[in-house]
């Protein structure tokens, strides 16, 4: 295989608590999760860069019927999990678990809130989440 940046290599960097994206050398666009081919200009010429881990909340939900991985992690109707889409200060957006809001009043969660990366160790994996 000639592909050195893979889905798994990204998560291996997350295990080291590094948010590793890519930046297109042709059009300058920054990708997170990292892309090997720029979806904007189609270039294959990208650099790996580290992102600072700061962003703002663009959309969110509080999930009362979680997927089975979240159920295994202890979430459910009595202990819902907050998910959101975060726009990184460098530009790209990611999906992630969000911590630090009072989930008993989901209507009070504010879009636009600044969040910072939080690495959660869960079993064998490390998850990139964000907290207020």
């Amino acid at each position: 295989m000639s592909v050195d940046l893979t889905i798994n290599s990204y998560f291996n960097e997350i295990k080291k608590k590094k948010i590793s994206g890519t930046q297109c050398k042709e059009c300058g666009r920054i990708h997170l999760p990292p892309r090997v081919i720029c979806d904007h200009c189609k270039s294959q010429n990208l650099d790996i860069i580290e992102l600072a881990g700061e962003g703002t909340l663009q959309a969110y939900s509080v999930v009362y019927v979680p997927n089975s991985k979240m159920v295994a992690a202890g979430f459910g109707r009595e202990n819902p999990n907050c998910v959101g889409i975060v726009k990184m200060s460098e530009g790209p957006m990611v999906s992630a678990e969000i911590y630090g809001f009072d989930l008993s009043e989901p209507e009070k969660i504010k879009i636009g809130t600044s969040v910072k990366a939080k690495f959660i160790e869960r079993g064998e994996s490390v998850i990139l989440a964000f907290e207020v």
Binding site: Y60, V63, P66, G84, E97
Partner: peptide, 30 residues
């Protein structure tokens, strides 16, 4: 729920805690 979730991106979305109601709910809050 898990079967429907396979229509989303498993490593980047589902493993980040999302479900299908969660996606559309996020569009709703936006």
């Amino acid at each position: 729920t898990d079967t429907l979730a396979t229509a989303a991106d498993i490593p980047y979305e589902v493993n980040a805690g999302f479900t299908f109601p969660g996606f559309y709910a996020s569009m709703a809050t936006a």
